[in-house]
Design a protein around this nucleic acid. Structure first.
Lengths: 154, 154
DNA sequence: CTTGAACCTGTAGTCGCTACAGCTTGCATC
DNA sequence: GATGCAAGCTGTAGCGACTACAGGTTCAAG
């Protein structure tokens, strides 16, 4: 693939590991510039577009929300600006990751506790059900809005 | 609050830490039975409803998806059934939690690496931006659909 | 030319909520 | 009884980040 070869959306998807539909989605929400089109109205992507999408996907992979990525891309387009904003975004995200880890570890521990108490038999004797029904075993000290604890959204 | 006192939705919300809107949502999707109503069409909840909602919230807090909770509640309503299904649901969930932990730890490490390389200055010299642009630093060995790595959905 | 894959747009759905708008009810106070 | 405000109601839309259609067009291989 030389520098002047343009990619169809399917080829770009294959190259970047990003779904066709997701590429269209990113174009629709403005994270990718509108692509050139063939006379048949099919999108064509140059290498700059491929690089931008790779950046985007990499940032997504690291869990950055799209709003943050939008900002990172904006900053990347302005190489003379100070990178303190980038640093702030990245550090903020790392802090979120760490909070998340704390919560998941607590969750793991609690699930392990519940499961090891399960001795089999009938539901009536089930420690999992009992624990879920037993309010004393809530992870939250009281009922905060940050409950519940989702894993991921896929 | 004695056993025969019925709660309005607001009081139930306060008692269980679950939002009014969420309680209505759970009723709508069938996780909670339709509540009794006053002559003025306001919902009233008995203690059984409070207990069921508490169970539900506790399970949500532990990150069980609603579909799994639906099944857990169904099983809880049948105390004579074997609890192997419950065990399977809980263990499956714990396995997901552990996978999630592995991924978040890797994510934390990668973010730390990127951030500690950031020396300040201009975007043009920014290691964060470079790392995001650099495809060699992807967490995924190749581009799997499980990329990206969201934290949570709130 | 035929065929089937890849492409297009537009819309709706996923998951689990959450936040309105516009209305009614309930209760305390005067 | 009148007033005022909080709490209640239904229905709808939105959030974030996709994802999956339906129904059509284009493209390339045979």
């Amino acid at each position: 693939m030389s520098d002047n070869r343009l990619l169809t959306i399917g080829r770009l998807a294959a190259t970047t590991g990003c779904k066709v539909e997701t590429i269209r989605y990113y174009e629709r929400i403005g994270l990718l510039p509108a692509a050139e089109r063939t006379s048949g109205n099919q999108r064509l992507y140059d290498d700059a577009a491929r690089r931008r999408l790779s950046f985007l996907r990499h940032a997504r992979e690291l869990g950055f929300p799209l709003a943050a990525i939008r900002e990172l891309l904006r900053l990347a387009d302005h190489p003379d600006q100070p990178c303190s904003s980038i640093d702030r975004i990245a550090r903020g995200h790392l802090a979120q990751v760490r909070l998340r880890l704390v919560r998941l570890r607590a969750l793991e521990t609690e699930l392990e506790r519940i499961i090891t108490q399960c001795r089999g038999g009938a539901v009536a004797d089930c420690r999992v059900i009992e624990s879920l029904a037993d309010h004393r075993h809530c992870l939250a000290a009281d009922h905060h809005p940050e409950m519940p604890t989702p894993l991921e959204d896929n």
